[in-house]
Simulated assay, not measured.
Amino acid sequence: MSRTTLACDIYKLWDSEREKLKEFISQNCQRVCLTTDTWTSSQNLSYMCLTAHFIDNNWKLQKVLNFCQVTSHTGKTMAKKVEHCLSKWGLNRVLTLPVDNASSNDVGIQYLKKRLMSWNSLVMKGDYIHMRCCAHILNLIMKEGFKDNIDAILRIRGAVKYVRSSHSRLSKFKTCVEKQNIE
């Protein structure tokens, strides 16, 4: 079998399975909650991961994942990619979209909110679609709290890295810990 034939067979299988999944979604999905994340690879290419979470008719949590390359991290670009993914999967009834506090996300959410309103698919006119990511907020709080002590933290991290980078150093450190009766 040639690689061209194999690639063609894999694409056919992918299309078949995607259609089955779209059918499942259309029959079992009332509302979706979206999560998204973006990053830039070491090759300087930007990517976005979009996950749609929903509870099916049997009360089981389901997740649909979409992974794609994006041209930039601007709010409108990201929102258009999300809109395209939602359209492709037939997901038009969005309940929430938690994102971090970046200003570009505010722009993207406003764009998406307008588009979803035009689809007549938002709950409470989309008042609660934009959810702030709790993990990101906690991270910001912790960074602010440690701002004054960041030098001490960096020195501790450096010491740990130094000790752990060599088996003999780690053994000597453990010996010192035992001699001092430190847990």
Results as ranks from 00 to 15, higher is better:
residue 162 Y to M: 09
residue 13 L to F: 06
residue 141 I to P: 04
residue 39 W to P: 00
residue 64 V to D: 02
residue 22 K to H: 01
residue 15 D to C: 07
residue 37 D to K: 04
residue 87 S to D: 15
residue 55 I to W: 02
residue 76 K to R: 11
residue 81 K to V: 11
residue 71 T to R: 09
residue 116 L to G: 03
residue 174 K to T: 05
residue 11 Y to S: 11
residue 101 N to G: 15
residue 54 F to D: 02
residue 172 K to Q: 09
residue 63 K to Q: 13
residue 79 A to I: 04
residue 119 W to P: 03
residue 170 L to E: 10
residue 42 S to Y: 10
residue 92 N to I: 10
residue 67 F to K: 01
residue 125 K to L: 12
residue 6 L to P: 02
residue 35 T to L: 02
residue 44 N to M: 10
residue 53 H to I: 01
residue 2 S to M: 01
residue 123 V to A: 11
residue 81 K to A: 13
residue 14 W to Q: 07
residue 138 L to S: 09
residue 65 L to W: 09
residue 18 R to N: 05
residue 43 Q to S: 15
residue 98 P to E: 04
residue 142 M to L: 15
residue 12 K to A: 08
residue 95 L to Q: 07
residue 37 D to G: 08
residue 159 A to Q: 14
residue 23 E to P: 01
residue 74 T to L: 06
residue 26 S to R: 14
residue 98 P to D: 04
residue 60 K to N: 10
residue 103 S to K: 13
residue 82 V to S: 01
residue 179 K to D: 12
residue 52 A to H: 00
residue 135 A to R: 07
residue 110 Q to C: 09
residue 105 N to C: 03
residue 43 Q to E: 14
residue 174 K to Y: 07
residue 38 T to S: 13
residue 130 H to R: 11
residue 114 K to Q: 10
residue 144 E to G: 13
residue 145 G to F: 11
residue 167 H to Y: 11
residue 61 L to W: 02
residue 58 N to K: 13
residue 119 W to C: 09
residue 134 C to S: 15
residue 47 Y to I: 01
residue 56 D to F: 04
residue 44 N to R: 15
residue 18 R to E: 12
residue 17 E to K: 14
residue 57 N to A: 11
residue 134 C to G: 10
residue 119 W to S: 09
residue 64 V to M: 07
residue 64 V to L: 12
residue 84 H to Y: 13
residue 170 L to I: 01
residue 112 L to Y: 05
residue 41 S to W: 02
residue 111 Y to M: 08
residue 152 A to C: 14
residue 10 I to R: 06
residue 182 I to L: 15
residue 12 K to Q: 10
residue 128 Y to H: 13
residue 172 K to S: 12
residue 165 S to Q: 14
residue 173 F to P: 01
residue 129 I to N: 04
residue 53 H to F: 08
residue 108 G to K: 05
residue 158 G to S: 14
residue 66 N to K: 13
residue 45 L to F: 10
residue 64 V to W: 06
residue 146 F to N: 12
residue 169 R to L: 06
residue 119 W to Y: 11
residue 5 T to C: 07
residue 156 I to Y: 06
residue 37 D to C: 03
residue 140 L to S: 07
residue 27 Q to A: 11
residue 181 N to P: 04
residue 126 G to A: 03
residue 182 I to D: 04
residue 122 L to P: 02
residue 63 K to H: 12
residue 28 N to I: 03
residue 183 E to I: 14
